[in-house]
Every structure is written in C-alpha cells, then in structure tokens.
C-alpha cells in the first residue's frame, strides 16, 4: 500500500525543484541538493542504450558534489556565455511521480518530465526525460542526494544545460 504522505512529500519536492528552475531562482534551487549530491545525465551508447559507469564511460553531465552545479550557475551569471545570454525561458512539466522505495533515511523516486524551452532564435523546443532520484532525509525534510536524467532525445538539436532538461 502506497505511503500517501511520502508520495505527497516527494511530489511536492519535485514540483518545487521544477518551479525554482523555471523561476531561475538558482540559490534556492541549490538548497534542495545535499552537499555531496550527484547530478548525472548519462550519454547514449552507439548500441542505443545509456552509459552506466560514469567513471569509465562518457556522460552528457556527471558531477559528483553540489559544487559542480554551483559552477554551472556561476557560468550562467557571467553574462558572457553566448548560449546562456539571454537565458532561455523554460517550463517544466513534471508528471508520473512514483516512490520506488524507502530505506531508513533514503527514498528512491521516479518521474517523467518534459521541458519547453524558448529563445527568440530557436523558438520553442521540447526535451523529454525520465528522472531517477535518490532523496535523503536530514533535519526533518527531504533533499536531493542524486538526480539522474535519462534523455529521450538521442540526436541533440542545439544544446542544453541543467535547467532545460
């Protein structure tokens, strides 16, 4: 029997993350991540799957530690990154949130997400992915210990960063 309170708590966290990204409230967004959080977007293998061993295989993004995300936020804020100036507007649509498991302070969750991105130059673009989260309970609340993003799109039209997937 699903734990409805946990389901609601997890959904709220995932929706909040999406909303903070869309609002470009980076500092508040980073607060959702544990200090040692992993942000991971596997690459595709030529055989059509996803890479699975980040120490030995290529990824779109693999950052162990929240500092990697902080660096990406720093880069957006330099104001001289052509691909991020002006910042594309985004709208995340997070759905199908499911709690996959719970073990002490650790919670596993899944969701699908579609992000609409808009820039004057490229118009509206959509990227679709699955999210696999590891959440950790600390001081009462849940925070993100790992976010794995499995992209649907194997041929990348344009470019993207953490806020557009």
């Amino acid at each position: 029997m699903a734990d409805l309170a946990l389901q609601a708590e997890v959904s709220e966290l995932l929706f909040r993350e999406a909303r903070l990204l869309d609002a470009q409230r980076w500092t508040d967004w980073l607060e959702l991540y544990c200090e040692d959080a992993v942000f991971w977007v596997p690459a595709f293998t030529m055989a059509g799957g996803y890479t699975e061993q980040p120490e030995q295989e290529l990824n779109f993004i693999y950052m162990a530690g929240r500092s990697g995300l902080e660096e990406r936020v720093f880069r957006l804020n330099t104001g001289i990154s052509l691909s991020s100036t002006p910042l594309p507007r985004t709208r995340h649509m997070v759905g199908m949130v499911m709690v996959d498991g719970q073990n002490g302070d650790a919670v596993q969750a899944f969701a699908n997400c579609q992000v609409a991105t808009f820039t004057e130059i490229r118009g509206q673009q959509f990227r679709t992915s699955s999210y696999e989260y590891l959440l950790r309970r600390s001081g009462g609340g849940l925070r993100i210990a790992q976010k794995k993003v499995l992209l649907l799109e194997a041929v990348i039209d344009g470019y993207f960063d953490f806020y557009a997937i």
């Binding site: 120490e55 295989e57 779109f60 052509l82 990348i156």
Partner: peptide
C-alpha cells in the same frame, strides 16, 4: 586518469558542456 579525462571532456566538449554550447551558438 580515465575518470579525470572524462570529467574534463564533459566540462568542455558536449552540447551539454560549458564551452561547446557557446561554440554552437556562435
């Protein structure tokens, strides 16, 4: 060394990196 090579690659070269997107934009 392999891991370091990969992390540096991902930092710079991909359309999800911190440099190649700017090349594509230009």
């Amino acid at each position: 060394m392999r891991a370091a090579r990969l992390r540096k690659f991902e930092d710079f070269f991909l359309p999800s990196g911190m440099a190649t997107p700017d090349d594509i934009a230009i």
